[in-house]
């Protein structure tokens, strides 16, 4: 992954921050959809709690009726009633 990032940076300087800084980019739509780019895998997944690994530590989402709409190496799209978002740094 690191090699890939470096190559991308060398290609162009007009890159979005989250890529250069290698941090997750989190978007929340209302309280029922959450999208995380630049994640590094799921640590825990249940209908109440989701924990995701990222470069800045673990992202913990609490809520109800979670459903992973989409998952691929870059993005996770999560739906459900979101109550709490917590960053746990290592």
């Amino acid at each position: 992954m690191k090699n890939k990032m470096k190559r991308k940076i060398s290609e162009s300087l007009e890159l979005p921050k989250e890529v250069i800084m290698n941090v997750p980019y989190i978007r929340i739509l209302g309280n029922d959809e959450l999208q995380i780019e630049n994640h590094k895998g799921i640590v825990e997944y249940s209908s109440d709690i989701v924990r995701l690994k990222s470069s800045i530590g673990i992202i913990k989402i609490e809520g109800k009726d979670f459903l992973i709409k989409e998952i691929n190496p870059e993005t996770v799209v999560l739906t459900g009633k979101i109550k709490n978002l917590e960053f746990i740094s290592i």
């Binding site: 997944y45 979670f66 459903l67 709409k69 989409e70 998952i71």
Partner: peptide, 9 residues
């Protein structure tokens, strides 16, 4: 592998 609508029961 593409998975979607993953639901923990």
């Amino acid at each position: 592998i593409k998975l979607w609508d993953i639901k923990r029961k």
